[in-house]
């Protein structure tokens, strides 16, 4: 790392910081119950619920902090928070 004059930083570079390790509860996806509404993906503060082309989502456990908003707001209870096994 070399500090540029003024300390400009490259965009999106927090990705090196894998926040998944913060997680206590882990979102478990019940795909069969998902109606592809996308609310989980929209709300996720860590951009860790990613909508796929087919409308279903995948969870990025590298960054998901386990806040549980996705599970709490899912209208079909298709996401369940389970204790993280370390």
């Amino acid at each position: 790392m070399k500090i540029a004059i003024g300390g400009m930083v490259e965009p999106g570079s927090t990705r090196v910081n894998k926040t998944g390790g913060w997680r206590i509860y882990r979102p478990l996806y019940h795909k069969d119950m998902c109606i592809k509404c996308g609310i989980c993906s929209l709300l996720c503060p860590d951009s860790s619920v990613k909508a796929q082309e087919d409308g279903y989502v995948i969870f990025d456990y590298d960054y998901c902090k386990g806040c549980g908003i996705c599970a709490y707001e899912c209208p079909k209870d298709a996401i369940e928070m389970v204790l993280e096994e370390k």
Binding site: R15, D46, S47, K65, I69
Partner: peptide, 25 residues
């Protein structure tokens, strides 16, 4: 351009959600 993951906001951070909605819109 939502916020990239890896930021240090608390789990469930309202600032991150607000920033994402602004950026999406």
């Amino acid at each position: 351009s939502r916020l990239a993951p890896g930021h240090r906001g608390c789990p469930g951070c309202c600032d991150a959600m607000a920033a994402n909605f602004v950026l999406e819109a």
